[in-house]
Write a protein that binds this DNA or RNA. Structure first.
Lengths: 123, 123
DNA sequence: TCGATAGTTCAATAAGCGTTGAACATAAGG
DNA sequence: CCTTATGTTCAACGCTTATTGAACTATCGA
């Protein structure tokens, strides 16, 4: 549990995998909250998402988001901090992430993006 | 087989469903070719996509694309013509479809978007 | 050293997805 | 009318996915 888990390189990021990752409501909520938090600290701990699902289920979704190249995981003690790979995504798919985030923001209520959110209140 | 199949209204179009639809390589290729064709006729027949998969498999993907609101099916004799719901998508999720299409265009080869395509040659 | 905390990994389950071929429905053309 | 072409529907299959709880690992603090 000590080392940084594997991430794809920028060039290895694939469009279908990214879109599939973003199509899951829980993962979309994670990405959305990471984007919200960027204005403050740019990083969030796993535990900050406990309202979205159980721990092991979250670990599953975190792995998917990491493996498809959407986010980066940094290990620090017993905590793991994660942030969006904005630059890499912008380089590979210009404008895509922002378009998805704006679309999600428009439907924030419908998508329950802020439900049981321990995070955004800190903003 | 005679009547126009059901389509969601503009407001019923949901972001996760759209992203999930676009995450499938075959459906992404269909959408991409529809977008290419827009410069010419804006519509394509089902049969124009026969290079992408078998007929019944295509019918399955067409239904998904229609039900999620990405495209519109018009019945004309034994043919069915389909086109992208550009205006509706732009109203619901501004910039999203274009961002996906530009991203797909960048990876056209990697995604085999033009392989066995009966269509784009007509352009 | 001992316990508490943070998060992952594993096995099991249930549900959904993509693919296929056969059967079917509809319309056009001779 | 009969045949052909276009496309859908159905049942079946194998595969992937999301979810859960239990077991496990690693780190921090007392």
């Amino acid at each position: 549990m000590s080392r940084t888990p594997p991430h794809p390189t920028r060039e290895q990021i694939e469009l279908p995998l990214v879109l599939d990752c973003l199509s899951d409501p829980i993962r979309l909520a994670i990405v959305y909250q990471l984007a919200q938090q960027e204005r403050v600290s740019s990083e969030l701990r796993c535990g900050d998402f406990n309202g979205l699902a159980g721990k092991s289920n979250l670990a599953y979704h975190f792995a998917k988001l990491r493996e498809c190249g959407l986010m980066l995981t940094r290990v620090a003690g017993t905590n793991r901090f994660m942030r969006l790979r904005r630059e890499d995504l912008e380089a590979r798919f210009p404008g895509l992430l922002d378009a998805v985030l704006r679309s999600a923001a428009k439907d924030a209520e419908r998508l329950q993006l802020l439900a049981t959110c321990d995070v955004v209140e800190a903003e």
